[in-house]
Every structure is written in C-alpha cells, then in structure tokens.
C-alpha cells in the first residue's frame, strides 16, 4: 500500500515527476531556474495531491485516447471549416440528451471537456447523469460517437463501463 507512507501520500512520485517536467519545459531547461523551480514543484505536488487524489491512468489507454482525440479533432475541424467556407452555410444544429455512464469525478469532468473540444459537439449543461450536448449536425449519429468517446475516456482511466 502506497498510502501507508505519509511522505509518499503527501508528495506522490508521479505528480512530482509531472510538475518537474512542466517546470523544465517552462524554463526551457535553464539550470539557474531550479532554485525557484524546486520549491514550486514541491508546493504544486503537495497542493495537487490534497485537491485531487491519485488517479490511475493506463499507458495503453492514454495512447489510444490521444490517437482518437487528435484524429477526430482534425477531421472535425475540417468539417466545421468547410461549413464556414461554403456559401450555403450548411448547418443543422440541435440539442441532444446523452446519459453518462461514467460516474462523477475526474473522468466525468474530463469527458465534458473533451466533448466540448471535439468538433460537432459542445457540452451545454449537466443535470444529474444527463449531459445536454449541442450538436452542429443533428443528422449525424451523435449518440454513437459520444458512446465511442466515453469508452475511450473510460479506457484512459482504466475503467470499464457497465
């Protein structure tokens, strides 16, 4: 059990590594900056561990999610772009309700944000387990796409949907 050790619980190693990487990138590798960087990384790790308990991300799920996200971002942006360029401005927006399988917590917040980022969908409201999504093209099979996305998000967090 990792949480038995109070130091490891207060400063989880994955967080320390992640924030150290962020600092290294932000400072563009300037060695002198670590005099500020080390306290900042320690403080950020401690705060983040208090605010958000450790999450279990699966590397294979992360890779699969990244591929899915990048591909669909690009495809969707091309779709939105051609709607904006075409003189006829072909749009058929609508509002759909989607019942979320993911439980409350970080995976759900993550899902909400990704729905807003992926073109064609925009999370407009959340009531209980029902996500209200504004879609750009109501003729597409939006619920199926959302279900596919939700499965990828679940895979990222090492969860299996019921």
């Amino acid at each position: 059990m990792q949480s038995r050790n109070p130091l490891r619980a207060a400063l989880p190693l994955p967080r320390l590594l992640a924030f150290a990487l962020v600092w290294w990138l932000i400072s563009e590798g300037a060695a002198a900056s670590w005099s500020i960087g080390v306290p900042a990384v320690l403080l950020a790790s401690w705060l983040s561990a208090r605010l958000l308990p450790p999450q279990r991300l699966t590397p294979s799920g992360l890779l699969r999610f990244l591929g899915f996200f990048l591909l669909h971002s690009l495809l969707g942006a091309v779709d939105v772009a051609q709607r904006a360029f075409r003189p006829a401005r072909p749009l058929n927006p609508g509002m759909i309700d989607y019942s979320l399988q993911l439980g409350p917590g970080l995976p759900r917040v993550f899902m909400l944000n990704v729905v807003s980022l992926l073109p064609g969908t925009l999370s407009a409201d959340l009531e209980a387990d029902c996500l209200r999504v504004h879609v750009l093209d109501a003729d597409q099979d939006n619920p199926a796409q959302l279900a596919q996305l939700e499965a990828r998000v679940a895979g990222l967090f090492g969860l299996t949907l019921p």
Partner: peptide, 27 residues
C-alpha cells in the same frame, strides 16, 4: 480563417462557439 468566418457567419452563439473553439484550437 475558418474560425473567424464561422464566428461572423454562423447564426447563433452556440454554432459560433463551435466554429471558434474547434477551428482555432486545431489551427
């Protein structure tokens, strides 16, 4: 350019949000 066109041409705030955030993010 597509994001800005969408922002100017799309009919309501929701569709404009689609155009602006998505196209600009990929851009």
């Amino acid at each position: 350019l597509a994001g800005t066109l969408g922002l100017l041409r799309f009919p309501d705030v929701y569709t404009r949000l689609h155009a602006l955030t998505k196209a600009d993010n990929v851009g």
